[in-house]
């Protein structure tokens, strides 16, 4: 049996038996990444919309920086957050290093630039199209921004999904700030890294299949919601 077939067998076994360890790991992965994306969206979307609509000195520089941050290495974010949350660091007294909260924190930092950069682009494109119209209606900047966000809601959904994909798939940051503690901070990606370390490549690949299926299912669900909403609201 090839490694691929063995991996699929492992994945099927884990899923069919609803392995409690697996359920916990999957659920933590989803909860951490979901919370991180919500926080990142709350920070990134207003930022993206502001940069899209407002004109101010240094705007181009800010856009370049934001776009560059799309390539932020997760291990660097992990290290920075580790130093921040470490007992010897500035936020050490919170005592949240090696907890899921630290993982949410790190992933939110990773995802926020994605949400901000991609939403800035969508909203700016819409702004070009509707600027005159909105101005002639006398819309204040904030009002115009909100209108554009609403107008771009479907492409913004894709933006949020891209952010979620980045969060749920990264391993560098959560490994450092979470510590991959069994039953506490072990998520899909760190579990895959651990199984790879132990040389159980089929099991590692099997977990990889499960992670991919989850992301696929989530995107399919988002697509269905989007279609339904588009149908209803036009």
């Amino acid at each position: 049996m090839g490694a691929g077939a063995q991996a699929l067998t492992h994945a099927a076994e884990l899923l069919v038996t609803l392995d409690p360890g697996l359920v916990q790991i999957v659920s933590l992965s989803l909860r951490v990444s979901f919370a991180a994306v919500v926080i990142a969206t709350l920070a990134g979307l207003p930022l993206g919309a502001t940069i899209a609509v407002a004109r101010f000195p240094g705007r181009q520089v800010l856009i370049v920086i934001l776009n560059a941050l799309l390539g932020l290495p997760s291990v660097v974010v992990g290290l920075a957050v580790y130093l921040l949350l470490s007992r010897a660091g500035p936020l050490g007294s919170m005592g949240i290093l090696f907890t899921p909260s630290a993982m949410v924190f790190a992933q939110a930092i990773l995802v926020a630039p994605i949400i901000a950069a991609l939403s800035r682009q969508s909203i700016e494109d819409a702004w070009r199209e509707y600027e005159e119209q909105l101005r002639s209606l006398g819309a204040a900047p904030v009002q115009a921004g909100l209108t554009l966000v609403w107008d771009c809601r479907f492409s913004l959904l894709t933006t949020v999904l891209a952010g979620f994909g980045r969060a749920v798939a990264e391993v560098g940051a959560v490994m450092i700030v979470g510590g991959n503690i069994d039953g506490v901070t072990r998520v899909m990606t760190t579990a895959i890294a651990l199984e790879t370390s132990m040389g159980d490549l089929p099991l590692a690949l099997g977990l990889g299949f499960i992670l991919l299926s989850l992301v696929l299912a989530l995107n399919a669900a988002a697509q269905v919601i989007k279609e339904a909403a588009q149908h209803r609201y036009g």
Partner: peptide, 25 residues
Amino acid sequence: MNAVRRLLLAALLAAAHFAALPAGA
């Protein structure tokens, strides 16, 4: 807009719930 608002609210609540849940405290 209601559906979206409800969805957003649900998402926020879920996030808040998670954040408020101190891991194994």
